[in-house]
Amino acid sequence: MLRTVRRGLARIPASPVLLSDLLWASAILLSFVLGPRSASVREGAFCLTLATLVALRHRAPALVVTTGSAVWVIQAAVGVHASVWGVGYLLLVHAAGELATGRQSWLPLIAASLSALLVSWKAPVFLVPIVLCWNWGRRSREHRARLSELKDRAARLEREREEIRSKVVVAAEQARIAHELHDVVAHNISVMVIQADAAACVLDSSPQQAKEMVDTIASTGRAAQIELNRPLGILRGS
């Protein structure tokens, strides 16, 4: 049996939010267990209900606050006073303000305010902490949204910087290859021009020497072609 429970707990995704809710729910239950022995069974039932709602407050915040408001009114109507109800209920309101969006974002506040007025219509002192906790949740959501936006912007800037860095590296490599091509072409063309002028000068007086110079021009051209193939291949690859 214990092994089965451990396997079931291992399948539950461990997240800070879930662990926080479970810790708050456990604290509410412990406060009842360790509280005065004169506590009634109905108080225990309300504490168990509150602990369950706190454990689920990040799953369905609007529904949890609406349910908690109804339970709060019932608790006051039957004359049961649970000592930890106020703290737990404010946790529900905070989660609703933080997570509920759209039209649902106002529903928890309205439900909580109506329940506070029904519970203490002569002195609605509970409205102040309810509104403050709901607004605190809204501020937390806005702050989290800003942080997420800043993280996305930082990631986008990092990607753009990497792209720019890659382009700079490619441009530098292309400039180096272009300089190398210029040196190869300039050197070999200079040699070929000199050999061609010399061959033209000795063509009538020494045909054999002119033929050797022409061969030198051809070999220089082939060597230049081989030297040009390597940087041109790199440029085609980039």
Rank of each mutant, 00 (worst) to 15 (best):
P16K: 00
G35T: 03
S40Q: 08
A27E: 11
P36R: 15
G35W: 01
W24S: 15
L29G: 04
D21K: 06
A25M: 01
S38V: 09
A27S: 12
I28K: 06
E43F: 05
G44A: 01
D21Y: 01
A39V: 07
L22C: 08
V33D: 02
F32I: 07
C47R: 14
A39T: 12
S26L: 09
T49W: 05
R37D: 06
L29Q: 12
V33M: 11
A39D: 09
L50G: 05
S38E: 08
A45F: 07
L29P: 07
P36L: 14
D21H: 10
S26A: 15
L18V: 13
R37I: 12
A25F: 00
L19S: 05
V33H: 05
I28W: 04
L34S: 04
I28H: 11
P16M: 01
C47N: 14
L23R: 07
T49Q: 11
L23T: 13
A27Q: 12
R37A: 10
S26H: 07
F32A: 14
L34Y: 00
L19W: 02
F46G: 00
S20I: 05
C47G: 06
P36N: 13
L50W: 01
L19T: 11
D21F: 03
W24K: 15
L30F: 08
A25Q: 02
E43S: 14
L29S: 07
S31T: 04
R37V: 13
A39S: 14
L29F: 03
E43Q: 15
R37L: 15
S40D: 03
F46H: 00
L48F: 11
D21E: 06
R37C: 11
A45S: 05
V33I: 13
S38F: 03
L18Y: 04
L19F: 03
P36W: 07
L50R: 03
V41C: 06
I28E: 06
L19K: 11
E43T: 15
P36Y: 07
A39W: 11
T49C: 13
L48I: 11
C47T: 13
L30D: 12
G35E: 02
A45P: 03
L34N: 01
V17F: 03
T49P: 01
S40F: 02
P16S: 01
R42T: 10
D21A: 14
F46T: 00
F32E: 13
L29A: 09
R42Q: 12
R42G: 02
A39R: 15
L48R: 11
L34V: 07
G44Y: 01
A25S: 08
E43C: 13
C47S: 15
L34I: 02
A45E: 09
A45K: 08
S38L: 02
R37W: 09
P16Q: 00
C47F: 06
G44H: 00
F46R: 00
V17G: 04
G44D: 01
A39P: 03
P36G: 08
T49V: 05
L22I: 11
A27P: 04
A27W: 04
S31V: 02
F32Q: 10
S31E: 09
S31C: 05
S20D: 12
V33Y: 03
R37Y: 02
T49M: 09
T49Y: 04
P16N: 00
L29W: 10
L22Q: 08
L19I: 08
F46V: 00
L48S: 09
S40E: 02
F46Q: 00
L30E: 13
S40K: 04
S38D: 04
T49G: 09
V41W: 08
A25H: 02
S40N: 09
W24I: 14
V17L: 10
